[in-house]
Computed example of a mutant assay.
Amino acid sequence: MKGRRFFLLALVVAALLLVPYSALTGDHQSGHTPYDDLTERIPEAYFDTDGDLLRDGEEPIYGTSITDVDTDDDLCPDGVELLLWLELAQGAPVDEREHKMPLGDADRDGMPNIRDPDSDNDGLPDGWEFENGLDPSVGHTFFHLLPDRWQYYPFFSGDLKDIDGDGMPDDWEDALGIENATDDSDGDGVTNVGEYLNGTDPWGPDRLYGGTP
């Protein structure tokens, strides 16, 4: 009985030795493996070639690239940007939703938001605005403060130099035409440097920070 079992075991081992190794593990000469057989059966539309969290089959819908993680170079991966635009539109009033959608055109320049690096033309990339709590579909997120370009550009650009040491970044002064920190350009009782620190408009009355309406 033991001899018969040994004989059968020997036959199995011999049969395995006769099977080409490539049949078990793949054709290593061509680099083909059983894993390749599996992936070849998965539709390419389900892949995410560039790793931007947007599947290859969805990219053509929005006109984004399957090989570029950030098609419009606005500092936000395409898939993440898609979700952020959808979230922004969902939370907006009904009459504002269309131009806040991924395929909307906030600045009406013919380029959909998801492929426009600066959808509101305020000089700040959409991705940076999303990250910093701003609305990339409008150039003036907080109406009681300055337009986004004037309020935030020095921080985006990293250019906070203040050559004259008056407490106001030179870029901010140049953008608004402000020279003297202690002047009150709009006559509302708040000095220019106070306007900068408060984030308010030095050329308009300020209702939130002690100025005269």
Rank of each mutant, 00 (worst) to 15 (best):
T141A: 06
T141W: 01
T141F: 02
T141I: 04
T141D: 03
F142A: 09
F142C: 07
F142S: 09
F143D: 08
F143L: 14
F143I: 14
H144P: 03
H144K: 10
H144I: 10
L145I: 01
L145V: 02
L145C: 07
L145H: 11
L145A: 08
L146M: 08
L146D: 00
L146Q: 02
P147L: 13
P147A: 09
P147D: 08
D148C: 04
R149A: 14
W150H: 11
W150D: 11
W150L: 08
W150A: 11
Q151E: 07
Q151D: 05
Q151P: 00
Q151K: 10
Q151Y: 00
Y152I: 03
Y152V: 05
Y152C: 06
Y153Q: 10
Y153F: 11
Y153K: 12
Y153G: 02
P154S: 04
P154K: 06
P154T: 02
P154M: 06
P154I: 05
P154D: 02
P154L: 07
P154E: 01
F155G: 03
F155M: 05
F155L: 11
F156W: 04
S157N: 01
S157D: 00
S157Y: 00
S157H: 01
G158M: 05
G158I: 05
G158Y: 01
G158L: 05
D159A: 13
D159Q: 10
D159K: 13
D159I: 13
D159L: 15
L160I: 10
L160Q: 03
L160H: 05
L160S: 04
K161L: 15
K161W: 15
K161S: 14
D162C: 12
D162K: 13
D162M: 14
I163F: 14
I163W: 13
I163T: 15
D164Y: 12
D164I: 15
G165I: 15
G165H: 12
G165L: 15
D166G: 11
D166N: 15
M168T: 07
P169A: 03
P169T: 03
P169I: 02
D170A: 04
D170V: 07
D171C: 08
D171H: 08
D171S: 09
D171G: 02
W172V: 06
W172Q: 04
E173L: 07
E173P: 06
E173S: 07
D174K: 10
A175I: 08
A175Q: 08
A175E: 04
A175D: 05
A175P: 03
L176V: 02
L176A: 01
G177E: 00
G177A: 01
G177L: 02
G177R: 05
